[in-house]
Design a protein around this nucleic acid. Structure first.
Lengths: 221, 221
DNA sequence: ACCTGAACACCGTTCAAGT
DNA sequence: ACCTGAACACCGTTCAAGT
C-alpha cells in the first residue's frame, strides 16, 4: 500500500491527539499497554507516523505525566493554608488513583514538566503567603508531597479495595499467609483491615491530619 | 552448536545465582538493563536455560524485590518504639537509594513476598509491644511506610544530589526555568535548596521526627 | 535434568521512498 | 509536510531437539 493522505472524515493527527490517545491507552491497559505501535493503530495510522508529531516515546511519557499533574487542584495563594493543603493532597490522591500508570512512570522521570513546576509553585505560594518562613515551607512541601506519593503507592499495592466486595480475593491471600511467623500482621489484617467498614481513604485522612497538625505546631510554637 | 554440559570450572546455575546476578544487573544498568537475555549471558548461558530455574521474569522481579526488603534492618520487639522506628525508617531509605530500580518495580508489584511480610510484622510487633493499640498501630505503620516511600521517590527524582558537586547540572536546570511563572519555587531553589550545606537527608530526618512526634502525641495524649 | 537453536509475537526507532 | 514499508536491534517465552 502506498503512502496516502488520510480519508476526508478523519481528523488530522496532532501532538495533542497523540497525548489524548496515550492517556486513554494507559488508563485502559496500564503501562505495558502503552506502545508506539498500539498508539498508532489507536489513531488509525502506522507507529512511524507518530514521529512526525513527537520526538520519541520518552517525550510522550513526559508529557502525559505533566498532564496528570495538571489535573490536580492547585491551592490558591490566599486560602487558609491548612484547608488549601488538605484539599490539594486529597485531589492529588484522587487523580493518581484514577491514573495508576502514572505512579509506575513517575519513578523513572528525570525532569519535571511545566505543569509540575506550576503546581509546586502554587503549593509554596500558599504556604509563604500564609506566614511560613522559607525553610519551614521547604520542609512542609517535601513532607506533604512524600506522604501523598507514598500513600498512593500503598493503596495501589493493596490486593483488594474493601473486604466486603472482594471476599474471595481476601481468602485467597490469607490462604498463603505464614500465620505463625507473622502473628502481629495477622492480627492487624483480621482484627482491623478486614473488619467491615474499613476504608483506606480513612487511613489517608488520618495521616494527613497528623502531618498538618505537626506543621501547625511548628508554624506557631 | 549442540547442547553440552557446562565446562568443569563453571559453577552450576541455581535459583540463588540467578537472583544474585539479577540484582547486580539492575544495580548497574537499572530496570531497562535487566533482561532475561542479558541475565543469561551474565551467567554464561542462553536466556532459555534460566527457565529451568525460574518460572518467568515476573518471578525474578518479585524475588529480588523481596531480597531488597530483607536488607532493611527490622526493629526488635522490645526496643523503645521511637528509636526502633526511626532506625528502620532510615535503614529503609538507605537500602532503597542503594537499589533505585526497586522503586520502579515496586509500583507494579501485586503480592508481597515472605521477607516483606516478616518486615511488616516486625514493625507492628515493636509498636504493639510498646503499648500501641491496634488501630493506632495500623495508622502508624501506614503513615511511616508512606512517608519513607514518598521521600525516597522524591530523592530519586532530584536532578542532583548536592549543589556543590553538580553545579553544571544545576545551571542547566535553571536555564530552562520559567522564573516569572513560578516565583515561589524559584525562591525556594535559589535561597534554600541551592545554598551550600543543604542536604536532602536533613529534609528526610526533619519530616521523620515530625511524624514520630505526632504518633507520640496520639499514643500518650 | 539441563542446555540449545529456531521460532513466535512483540518492542522503539531509522531511513529511503512515496504522495 | 506527512505517511508508509522494510529493516535493525532488541524483548519474553515456547518448544522440539539434543546430551
Amino acid at each position: 500500500m502506498p503512502a496516502r493522505r488520510r480519508s476526508p472524515g478523519t481528523p488530522p493527527i496532532t501532538r495533542e491527539r497523540v497525548l489524548d490517545a496515550a492517556i486513554q491507552l494507559a488508563d485502559e491497559g496500564g503501562v505495558e499497554g502503552l506502545s508506539m505501535r498500539r498508539l498508532g493503530t489507536a489513531l488509525g495510522v502506522q507507529a512511524m507516523s507518530l514521529y512526525n508529531h513527537v520526538p520519541n516515546k520518552d517525550a510522550v511519557v513526559h508529557a502525559i505525566l505533566d498532564r496528570v499533574v495538571d489535573e490536580i487542584r492547585r491551592p490558591a495563594r490566599d486560602t487558609p493554608w491548612r484547608e488549601a493543603q488538605r484539599d490539594r493532597a486529597r485531589s492529588a490522591r484522587e487523580v493518581y488513583t484514577r491514573h495508576p500508570w502514572a505512579m509506575e512512570l513517575i519513578t523513572a522521570r528525570t525532569q519535571p514538566g511545566l505543569a509540575t513546576l506550576l503546581h509546586h509553585d502554587a503549593i509554596l505560594g500558599n504556604l509563604r503567603t500564609n506566614g511560613f518562613p522559607l525553610p519551614l515551607a521547604a520542609h512542609a512541601i517535601a513532607l506533604l508531597d512524600a506522604y501523598v506519593f507514598g500513600a498512593v503507592l500503598q493503596e495501589l499495592a493493596l490486593p483488594f479495595q474493601s473486604p466486603e466486595e472482594d471476599a474471595p480475593v481476601a481468602e485467597e491471600v490469607m490462604a498463603a499467609f505464614p500465620a505463625d511467623q507473622a502473628p502481629f500482621l495477622l492480627e492487624m489484617i483480621t482484627d482491623h483491615a478486614m473488619q467491615p467498614g474499613y476504608a483506606f481513604t480513612d487511613e489517608f485522612d488520618w495521616g494527613l491530619e497528623l502531618v498538618l497538625d505537626g506543621l501547625e505546631r511548628r508554624l506557631t510554637p
